[in-house]
Nucleic acid binder design. Structure first.
Lengths: 194, 194
DNA sequence: AGTGGAAAGTTTACACTGTCAACATTGGGG
DNA sequence: CCCCAATGTTGACAGTGTAAACTTTCCACT
């Protein structure tokens, strides 16, 4: 269909897809170079030509994960919504993605498995962050007299939604009554748009 | 010195200590049953008698991690401090512990490595949560008309500090100006004690 | 057209892992 | 005193990632 530059088809993309499939089906434990290669019908050593090492392959998978993550955050964003509603929708998308893809989500934020020095991964991660950062413009959690109020608001929102998603995925919220992320965002901190 | 119920001394405790040492020195990757056993001078199969499997040993290590975690949160708690100051101190202890023991912190919240059905682990984790929950009594992030305001405040605080610690440990805050956790807690949401 | 070489994939080997079964050793309670 | 359960060892096994040597394919250049 697309390009076929060599004799067996579009590996690299097939390896990525197989990796994500195994990740969803069997979790991070079941994700091995040999399993991915086997699912693509190639030898266990073939992935090295495209990704160098397992770490490189996991980094590429995480990069694709951030792209889907950003898309999930954008899906609930209607044009007519208020900034508060858009923020709640983006955070809900963040948490929903983590819940729907727990192994991928865990991989995406694991310095143990991924190489955050990789430019592609860094760019994809920054793109996800930028979505929350953009929406949070005009909202303010600042204490009087402290600088960087915009940055601090962004860090607060990112930390809040990321911790919420992580703790829920780990099962630490199981004994508590359920509350969507919107019910945890303090209403009193919203500021009307100017 | 302590008790010596069998012919080689107090393994189990030695294995736990060796595991934590390796965790700090070499990270989660370097933590293997054989490495732990080797550091204690026993064969690679000895830990099975005390912990059953690697998962059991990691669960026990995480349990000890939660005990130290709770202690780190309590260290900054002075009796004379206001509730706001005590909250900020506990959260600072939470984040500092995560920064000082990144591998242990990662292990403690990894459903992949730990068995959260283990009663000891569950109790230790709940004890850590209870510290934040107790301090947050009297503080309120509730929207009017929603139930469970106490629970929601606790979830918000826990999510915020956990996400902050996790994202900072992953290096995702490296490009942003530094802000201690207290500068991210919104001041406007504090409520005076009654 | 034909050839050289780089890209893509295979094979083989190696060190390492966790788990298991069979075996050795020890120490304490009948 | 002696047996037995707890503790620890040995050896084997399937599985992992990595690396080197090898083979196959295809593209570019003369």
């Amino acid at each position: 269909m697309t390009s076929r530059p060599y004799h067996h088809g579009d590996l690299k993309a097939a390896l990525l897809a197989a990796g994500i499939d195994i990740l969803e089906a069997q979790g991070l434990d079941g994700l091995s170079l040999r399993a991915i290669a086997g699912r693509c019908g190639v030898s266990h050593s073939a992935p090295k030509n495209h990704f160098g090492s397992l770490r490189g392959l996991l980094t590429a998978i995480a990069t694709e994960g951030f792209r889907r993550h950003a898309q999930a955050m954008c899906e609930g964003l209607g044009e007519t919504a208020t900034r508060q509603q858009r923020l709640a929708a983006a955070m809900q998308g963040y948490a929903d993605f983590a819940q729907a893809n727990p192994a991928l989500f865990q991989l995406m934020f694991s310095k143990q498995h991924c190489d955050f020095a990789d430019p592609a991964l860094l760019q994809a991660a920054n793109a996800s962050y930028a979505i929350l950062a953009d929406i949070s413009t005009g909202l303010d959690w600042a204490k009087a007299g402290l600088p960087d109020s915009q940055t601090r608001t962004q860090m607060m929102l990112w930390s809040l939604v990321h911790g919420y998603a992580s703790l829920r995925n780990a099962g630490l919220f199981d004994r508590l009554p359920e509350h969507p992320i919107g019910y945890i965002l303090p209403a009193s901190t919203y500021r009307e748009e100017s």
